[in-house]
């Protein structure tokens, strides 16, 4: 039943502060926001961007330049590359974080598997975080570096196992 409900309609009647807190809590559980101040994260949330996608709708294509990472608030997202499914992500997962660092094309496709609600954390938001709270900005960059280093290590392992 809840899957059929339009995310737009549902959002309209949701209390904003409660909703922002819910988003902040979800971000804080991710490795990207590890050890970032809850208060600062809550202050950032109103500037983040909520988007709703219908089932099978493309979120982004491989090769398109990205501008930020997305956190899944509800629904499922599949990450594919060369017709191969790399991952199925669910509520609380995030993806597309490479675009926070470089102005380069996306490395995979992201498609909504069901009606999905995402909140985007853009490069602009990262700049604002760094301007307002330099310590948290530096911590987030360190977290991002750790995530990307882990992914590189896993990719290297996968290549050497082939």
């Amino acid at each position: 039943m809840s899957e059929e409900k339009s995310p737009l309609w549902y959002n309209f009647f949701r209390k904003k502060t409660e909703f922002n807190e819910q988003i902040a809590n979800l971000w804080l559980k991710t490795p990207l926001f590890n050890k970032i101040s809850k208060k600062h994260c809550q202050l950032l949330v109103p500037d983040m961007h909520l988007r709703s996608y219908k089932s099978s709708e493309t979120i982004f294509n491989q090769g398109e330049t990205g501008i930020g990472a997305a956190l899944i608030l509800s629904g499922k997202v599949s990450i594919t590359s060369n017709k191969k499914t790399l991952a199925i992500l669910e509520t609380g997962d995030f993806f597309g974080e490479v675009a926070l660092v470089v102005d380069e094309p996306r490395t995979a496709n992201a498609t909504a598997q069901e009606n999905t609600e995402l909140v985007f954390f853009l490069r602009q938001n990262l700049d604002e975080l760094t301007d307002r709270y330099p310590n948290d900005g530096a911590r987030l960059m360190r977290n991002l570096a750790k995530i990307l280093a882990t992914r590189l290590r896993l990719s290297n392992q996968a290549i050497s196992n082939e």
Binding site: R51, Y53, T58, F60, E64, T65, I67, G68, Q124
Partner: peptide
């Protein structure tokens, strides 16, 4: 600005923000 750019269709959301940025 956020409200205005939120009007962009999903397909052009990132492109719009990238140009604005």
């Amino acid at each position: 600005r956020n409200r205005l750019l939120a009007l962009l269709p999903n397909e052009y959301f990132e492109m719009g923000w990238l140009i604005y940025y």
